[in-house]
Amino acid sequence: MAFVEPIVLRDRGVRLEPLALTHEAGLAAAAADGELWKLRVTSVPEPQDTRAYIEAALAGREQGHRFAFAVVEDATGTVLGSTSYHDILPAVKRVEIGYTWYARRVQRSHVNTTCKLLMMGHAFDALGCHVVGWRTDNYNFASQRAIERLGARKDGVIRGHAPRRDGTIRDTVMYSMRSGEWPEARTQLLYLLQQHAQKA
């Protein structure tokens, strides 16, 4: 039995469902909103690579180290992006959340906060994780701010850690949250979502 079993998570008009080849066209359309593959600090696939991107995610799921979701607008079925559990370590009950990206039109909306609330809640409350982690490019300052807003703590920087799409080598900033920190983080995320709803 896999540590992360297939599940659909939904809240506030957003649905996370297991990524599948049927999401190919929707995922390509989401990436095209903002030509996200042109950002050097992200993992967004170029249009012609979308199927290979999904196949790689499915291979990771089969091997037990990654579980990818399509982020979908619940009312319309429109694909908004993708996110994953990865570096899944059942022995120590740890997962990381990453490979996350969204169509430009829903960036800075409630979508990312909702997805993180769903994924962190599932990791801590259903899977019994002790730790949830994040990693990001040292130059992806927007990602670092977003992770810090979740209440995660910076663990440190792994220097010369991974290649970027342009061939340069990145330093990776590592973050984590322990299960004891989750109740306070959840309260803060719910507060942020309430604030966003009042502005909408």
Rank of each mutant, 00 (worst) to 15 (best):
R164W: 04
D171H: 14
L192Y: 15
E148L: 11
E62P: 01
W37A: 13
T50F: 07
G26P: 06
L39K: 11
V14R: 04
V92E: 06
T172V: 04
A197C: 01
S176Y: 05
L118K: 03
T83M: 11
E35M: 08
R105P: 00
Y53W: 14
V44G: 10
R15W: 03
V92A: 06
R145F: 01
I169W: 10
V4E: 07
M174L: 15
Y102K: 00
S109A: 09
E17Y: 05
Q107S: 00
Q194R: 13
L36Y: 07
R12N: 11
V111W: 02
R165M: 07
K116W: 02
I158D: 09
V132F: 14
L189T: 11
Q107T: 05
E184N: 03
A70N: 12
T83K: 01
L150F: 00
D74G: 11
L190T: 11
P6C: 10
Y175C: 03
G151W: 03
Q194L: 10
Q107D: 03
L127E: 12
G160C: 11
E148Q: 13
D137Y: 09
P183E: 08
E17L: 09
I97D: 02
S143E: 02
V92I: 13
V131Q: 15
I88V: 14
V92D: 08
D74H: 13
G81V: 08
I169K: 02
V4L: 08
A31M: 02
T114L: 05
A68S: 15
L21G: 14
K199A: 15
L58S: 06
G121V: 11
H122N: 12
R153E: 12
V14T: 14
M1T: 10
P183C: 05
L118A: 07
A146H: 02
L19F: 01
E46R: 15
P90V: 09
P163A: 11
R15N: 01
Y85S: 05
L118T: 07
Y99L: 01
V106W: 00
S179A: 12
A32F: 01
L19N: 04
A29W: 01
L80I: 09
R164D: 01
G26E: 06
G121K: 07
Y99V: 00
R108K: 12
D171V: 08
S43Q: 13
T100A: 09
S179M: 07
M119V: 03
F141M: 11
L127P: 10
C129N: 12
R15E: 15
G34F: 02
P183Q: 08
F67W: 08
C129P: 10
C115P: 02
I54W: 04
G34P: 04
K38H: 14
E73V: 05
A197F: 04
V72D: 10
I169V: 15
D87Q: 12
H86V: 01
I158T: 09
A30P: 05
S179W: 06
E55W: 04
Y85F: 15
V8P: 00
A29I: 00
S179H: 12
R178D: 00
D125W: 02
A28P: 05
A25W: 03
A70V: 12
T76D: 07
R164A: 02
V72R: 14
E184R: 09
V131K: 15
E148S: 06
G77P: 07
G98D: 04
G64A: 13
V92M: 02
Y139D: 14
